Amino acid sequence: MENLASIFSALGDPTRFAIIERLLANGEQSAGELQDVANISAPAISRHLKVLHEAGLVNRKINRQQRLYSLRPEAFATVGSWFISHQEFWAKSLDRLEAALKKESN
């Protein structure tokens, strides 16, 4: 879970989030295929893909002249684990609040 800050930072940008959404929907794609997720230049898309790769969210594979990108499931498992651990915290906190309110109203 040490990489969560860079993962959330990478996902915080709307263009990078759109790239992740596209990869979730369509699977592996080239940088060129991802270019239409935002109205930006090819070098800008490449910079966004670099951030996603450095955050550990995507794999990059070179096939001749193409750079192919796909999601790294283990990165999303880390995020899912973090959410689940915090969901349990809030559920327990709300249960304690409910019990205290019931006790107070009696």
Rank of each mutant, 00 (worst) to 15 (best):
I7G: 03
F8S: 05
F8R: 06
F8T: 06
F8D: 14
S9Q: 03
G12D: 04
D13E: 07
D13H: 13
D13A: 15
F17K: 13
F17M: 12
A18L: 10
E21P: 02
E21C: 04
E21M: 04
R22D: 01
R22M: 14
L23K: 05
L23T: 05
L23Y: 02
A25C: 09
A25R: 07
A25D: 11
N26K: 14
G27V: 07
E28Q: 00
E28V: 04
E28Y: 07
E28G: 03
A31I: 09
G32Q: 08
G32E: 04
E33S: 02
E33I: 02
E33R: 04
L34V: 06
D36M: 05
D36R: 10
V37F: 01
A38V: 07
A38Q: 01
N39G: 00
I40F: 05
S41Y: 04
S41T: 12
S41P: 08
S41F: 00
A42G: 10
P43E: 09
A44M: 10
A44W: 12
I45M: 08
I45S: 04
S46W: 02
R47Y: 05
L49A: 07
L49G: 01
L49K: 00
K50G: 14
K50D: 08
V51T: 12
L52W: 02
L52F: 15
H53P: 05
H53K: 14
H53I: 08
E54C: 10
E54S: 09
E54V: 10
E54A: 09
G56K: 08
G56D: 15
G56H: 07
G56A: 12
L57P: 13
V58Q: 03
V58R: 01
N59V: 03
N59A: 06
R60Y: 14
K61A: 12
K61I: 14
I62Y: 12
I62E: 12
N63G: 10
R64H: 15
R64Q: 12
R64A: 09
Q65K: 11
R67D: 01
L68K: 15
Y69A: 04
Y69R: 08
Y69N: 09
S70Q: 15
S70V: 03
S70L: 08
P73F: 00
A75Q: 01
A75F: 00
A75M: 00
F76W: 02
A77F: 12
T78C: 04
T78S: 00
V79T: 00
V79N: 06
V79F: 06
G80Q: 07
S81Y: 01
W82V: 01
W82Q: 05
I84L: 15
S85C: 02
S85V: 09
H86A: 06
Q87H: 09
E88M: 10
E88G: 10
F89D: 14
F89Y: 12
F89H: 13
F89G: 11
A91L: 12
A91W: 00
K92M: 05
K92Y: 13
K92C: 09
S93N: 15
S93Q: 13
L94Y: 15
D95C: 11
D95T: 14
